[in-house]
Amino acid sequence: MRQWPAMFIKDFKLTRTVFFIGLVMNVWIAILTLYMGRVADDSLLMFVPIAIAVAIHVAYVPIMVFISLKSEGNHLPLWLSNPQPAFKLLLSKIANGLMMIVISLAFLFALSGLLIVPKFNLIEPYWTDTWRVGLFIFPHIIWISIQLSVWAMVIWALYQCLKLKIGRWSRVAVVGVTILSGGGDALFKTTKLYRLVTEWGGIAYKFPAILSDPIQTYAGEYVYDFMIVVGLFILTAWLVDNKVEG
C-alpha cells in the first residue's frame, strides 16, 4: 500500500470510535426532530434540534484532529520517525476530519429529511429557503471547523515544543498564546485595514421566508481566512519537522 493512503487509514482507525458514536448521536437527533414535529405547534420548531446539532459540528474536525494528535502524543517517537514530511502527516488528519464531518452532516441532513417528508405540508411555505439555508450552512460549518482544527494543531504543536523546555509552564504559555492570538485576531477584524483588505467581492444570501435581512459575505473574507489557515498549517508543519521532540 502506498504511504499516504496507509497513513490515512491508520488515522481513520485512531478516531473511528468517536466517529461512530457521532453517527449514533445523529440518529438520536433525528428521532428528537421527529418527536418535536409531532408535539410542537410551530412547524419551524422541529428544526431546532437539527440546527443545534449542525452548529455543534463546527467543533467536529478540531475534536477529531485533537483526539488523533493526542493519541500520537502517547507514542510520539513512532509518529515523528515516520519519513513523510510533517505537512503530509498533518494533512492526513485534517482529511480524515473532513471526510468524517461530511459524512456526519450528510447523514444528519438525510436522516432528518426522511423524517420530515411525511410532515412536508407543515413546512412547505418555508421549504425553498430551508434547503437553501442548509446548502449555505453545510460548506460554512465545514470551513469553520477546518479553520478551528488548524488552530488546534498549532496549539498542540506549540505545547509539544514547549513542554520539554519550560515544563509545567508550557500549558500556561499555550493558553496565553491562544488568548492573545484569538484576541488579536478579533481586534484586527474591527480595524479599517481589515475591512480594506477583505471587503471586496460582496455576496448577499437572501432567505426571506426565514430571515428578514440577507446574510452579507465577502470573497475577500474567504481569501483572508484561507491565507491565515495556510499560514498556520505551514507553521505547524515546520514546528513538527524542526522543533517537536520525541
Binding site: P77, L78, L80, S81, P83
Partner: peptide
C-alpha cells in the same frame, strides 16, 4: 532531525505501537 528516520531504524525503550 526527524526526517533522519529515513536512514535510521529506531526503537524506544517503552515500545511505540499503534494499539489498533
Amino acid at each position: 532531525n526527524r526526517r533522519t528516520g529515513k536512514v535510521v531504524s529506531y526503537s524506544s525503550e517503552l515500545g511505540s505501537f499503534y494499539p489498533i
